[in-house]
Lab assay of single mutants.
Amino acid sequence: MEVRTIKVFTTVDNINLHTQVVDMSMTYGQQFGPTYLDGADVTKIKPHNSHEGKTFYVLPNDDTLRVEAFEYYHTTDPSFLGRYMSALNHTKKWKYPQVNGLTSIKWADNNCYLATALLTLQQIELKFNPPALQDAYYRARAGEAANFCALILAYCNKTVGELGDVRETMSYLFQHANLDSCKRVLNVVCKTCGQQQTTLKGVEAVMYMGTLSYEQFKKGVQIPCTCGKQATKYLVQQESPFVMMSAPPAQYELKHGTFTCASEYTGNYQCGHYKHITSKETLYCIDGALLTKSSEYKGPITDVFYKENSYTTTIK
């Protein structure tokens, strides 16, 4: 009895394709271990004539594949690729409408935090270190965002349907971005203890939790000093293409032309909904596939993004 075979390709990165001759009487799992086709788990399936010449994702289970996976995804987590594939199996079914010149995501599976993050990423200057993220990001900007969303979920250790947080998501993504040249110098002034300067680099240099107003941050924000008295913390120097200011959701007025974009969060910790506000020729609110415009805006804002380049204080 002759062994019926077909020729397929296996890959971990969709760049390096490895030619395989597979036995049609055995499952993919018996031949390769966990195997995925377009995100779908085909591990328990036997090869079919229609699979001839198709590319299958496999887990990096030998040295060659491990090197290829690390170079593309910059992670050695053995569960990463499987999590990416199972997320992709959902995100490829989502709709990605162009809204006001940006790629958004039609609401499904509690994905409003991903839509808000995706919209924000198209408006701030950011370059990702893992080629996987950078490639998928370019495709997302062009309207094909399924891979990018699935990668975000995998890097953030999230599953489809789980509630997510924009600030946490951005923080994970910033860790995989090139923020080497970003720098922030802060000064804390206390009447009792004097003053202390701190220099922050990388992710810490672009994120701040405690106030939404970048102007206020430049002037000074009140913080408790270690001595128990009130101290003032203010920005001395900022070198970065953008800054992200966050605070627990509270009524906040966004003035046209003073910011790049913002995240609105309605609801409580267990259950809520994100919308995205962007400042173009007027203010726009993007909620999944829905767009509304207004000249002014007041609502429960939790993150505001500002364009920056270089700032030095005039406070002496």
Rank of each mutant, 00 (worst) to 15 (best):
D41Q: 13
T10Y: 13
V99N: 07
P130K: 04
P248W: 12
R139H: 12
I223L: 09
E215L: 05
Q175V: 05
L118K: 03
D287F: 01
K233N: 06
N178T: 06
I6F: 13
L290W: 12
T278A: 10
M209G: 10
M244Q: 00
P224R: 15
A40E: 15
V58D: 04
G228I: 01
F259Q: 01
V236D: 02
T226Q: 13
L254G: 00
K158H: 03
P47G: 08
N89G: 12
P130E: 06
L291R: 08
Q20F: 08
F148H: 03
I105K: 04
L126D: 05
N89Q: 10
Y113T: 05
G161C: 05
V42F: 14
K233P: 00
L291H: 15
K219G: 08
G53N: 15
T27K: 09
Y57D: 06
K219L: 11
D62E: 10
Y306C: 00
G299Q: 02
L114S: 02
A87K: 06
Y73C: 03
Q230S: 12
L235K: 00
L290R: 12
T192E: 14
L121F: 08
V166L: 08
M85F: 08
T312P: 09
L17W: 07
Q122N: 03
Y252K: 04
Q175E: 09
Y113H: 06
Q123A: 07
L235Q: 00
D165K: 02
P224Y: 13
G161F: 02
F32I: 12
C193T: 02
L235P: 03
P60L: 04
D62H: 08
D38H: 11
V166S: 06
T232Q: 08
A154I: 04
Y306T: 00
R66A: 13
A150L: 02
K280Y: 08
E168N: 09
G161N: 09
T266D: 11
S50D: 13
A40Q: 14
V304W: 00
G53M: 14
N16M: 08
R139E: 13
A117G: 05
V221C: 08
G202H: 05
E162F: 01
V203C: 10
L179S: 04
Q195S: 15
E68A: 06
S86F: 07
Q196M: 12
D41C: 13
E264Q: 07
H74S: 07
L179P: 04
K46H: 13
P97I: 11
K95G: 09
I315S: 15
L114H: 02
L173I: 10
L133Y: 01
K307I: 10
H273D: 00
L119W: 02
P131V: 04
K280A: 14
P249F: 00
S50G: 13
L81S: 05
K255L: 11
E71K: 10
K219V: 10
D180T: 10
V22W: 04
Y265H: 00
H90C: 12
Q134G: 06
V160L: 05
K95W: 08
W107D: 04
L119E: 02
Q31N: 13
Q134P: 04
I6N: 06
S79H: 12
H90L: 13
Y113L: 01
L102T: 04
A289F: 06
P241S: 08
T5Q: 13
T11R: 04
S294T: 14
I6E: 04
C190I: 02
T258W: 03
N129L: 07
C271E: 08
F32R: 07
T292P: 00
F148Q: 01
D63V: 08
T278F: 12
G164C: 04
K293F: 10
R4D: 13
S25L: 12
A40K: 13
L119C: 08
A140I: 12
V12G: 07
L59P: 06
F217A: 15
V304I: 11
G210C: 01
I15W: 09
A108W: 02
F56L: 11
T5R: 13
R4S: 13
A231G: 04
N129S: 09
Y73F: 09
N111C: 00
G194V: 01
W107Y: 05
P248Q: 12
M85S: 04
T11L: 05
E296S: 13
Q30T: 13
V221Q: 07
F148I: 08
E125H: 08
A205W: 01
G143C: 03
R139F: 08
D38L: 09
V22G: 08
K218T: 06
F9G: 05
Q238H: 03
T266E: 10
V304M: 03
T226M: 10
N268L: 13
N14E: 15
I223A: 13
A289R: 05
G210Q: 02
L163C: 15
R141H: 09
S86W: 12
E144Y: 11
E215G: 05
G53S: 12
R167E: 03
Q30A: 13
Q238G: 02
L186P: 02
Q230R: 13
K7H: 15
C182T: 02
I105T: 04
G164E: 02
V21L: 14
T282R: 10
L81N: 02
T64Y: 11
V58N: 07
M245P: 00
T199W: 04
D287E: 03
Q175S: 09
K307D: 09
M244L: 05
